[in-house]
Simulated assay, not measured.
Amino acid sequence: MTRLRFVMPGYLHEATFKGDIKSVLRWINLDRTEDRVNAIPETSEKMDTSLIQVAAIGCQAALVTLLLQLGADIDYRNNAGQTAISLVIIRSPFASAEDRNEVVRLLLIWGASFFSNSDSSRESFVCRARNDCQHELADLLESELGGRRCEIVNLSPRPELNGKTCVADEYLPGSNQYRVTLETKSKEALILDPENMRRRDRTPQDCGCYIEFRNGRTIRHNFDSSEDCQAFVSALNRGEARPAVTEEAEARAEQAAAELLAELGLDGPPSGVRTGDEQAGKPKKKKGGKKKKKKK
């Protein structure tokens, strides 16, 4: 096994586990020529777990997404041969089933692999999910395209959807079909046969949607097509100025963040992503200090 060369400072392991996005991104951006996004701990006591593995164990979905967008190795295996997806399934006992489910689905969309004859095998994941009474997740993991991002192909009833991407949210064993959600702003739900789906994992250049961390919060950008998303990411990579974002447009983008869990087959706002409603409900800080009395 090839050991990753760059090491993270001690404080960053805890910051990553807790989902401190600001601290993690600040450290990574100190020198983008170094492979900091795939850094490992300073000591071997933590089994050489990479940043994305630590974020996955902590069930920090927003941070996991940001690391993947920056090029984190989703299939990196630590000293015990474990990957990010195996760690979140096996080593997140204190996380809720909902949070674990969210991160597992996220990693599947980005192409997390299974490795036979190990803790990272498909059979191991299915067994653990069933033991935890997560039978829907077990069915998803057991199926070939369950949880995966796919491209729609050869769909003669609706040819306009051919080439569009979707996420297989649920496997329907009775009919051997998938309930999918289109990766468009409409988020249309469909039932598709496996022969109309071709796996197309998310990549940093083709990520389907884009999570941005700005002004201390995460904002999700949705697109009507994969081409629009790729153009957006390409513009960012070239350092081109972003289009002006009004408060109204930003509020819409934040509201769209609430749809992330719908895409993952869950309810509620994703971990680390605040919606417009939460911003509106945030209490205002009162100015401290007593008023000075005027002298007569």
Rank of each mutant, 00 (worst) to 15 (best):
V54A: 01
S44I: 13
L70F: 02
E42T: 03
E42Y: 01
D35I: 09
L70K: 14
R26M: 13
T16L: 04
L66S: 11
H13E: 06
T33P: 04
E45I: 10
L66Q: 14
A61F: 01
T49Y: 03
S44D: 14
R32L: 15
E42K: 00
L67I: 12
S44E: 11
E34R: 14
V64R: 10
L25N: 06
F17M: 09
K46V: 08
E34A: 14
D48L: 13
A39I: 11
E34F: 00
I21H: 06
A39G: 01
G58V: 04
P41I: 13
R26Y: 13
V37K: 10
A39L: 09
Q60R: 15
G10K: 07
L68W: 14
Q60V: 14
V54C: 00
H13S: 14
I57G: 01
I57D: 02
N29I: 00
A15W: 00
V54M: 09
L67R: 12
Y11F: 15
L12Y: 12
I52F: 09
R36D: 07
G71T: 13
L12H: 09
S44L: 13
E45F: 11
G58E: 06
L68I: 14
A62H: 09
A56R: 08
L63M: 02
F17V: 11
K22R: 13
G58N: 02
A62S: 15
H13D: 05
E45P: 01
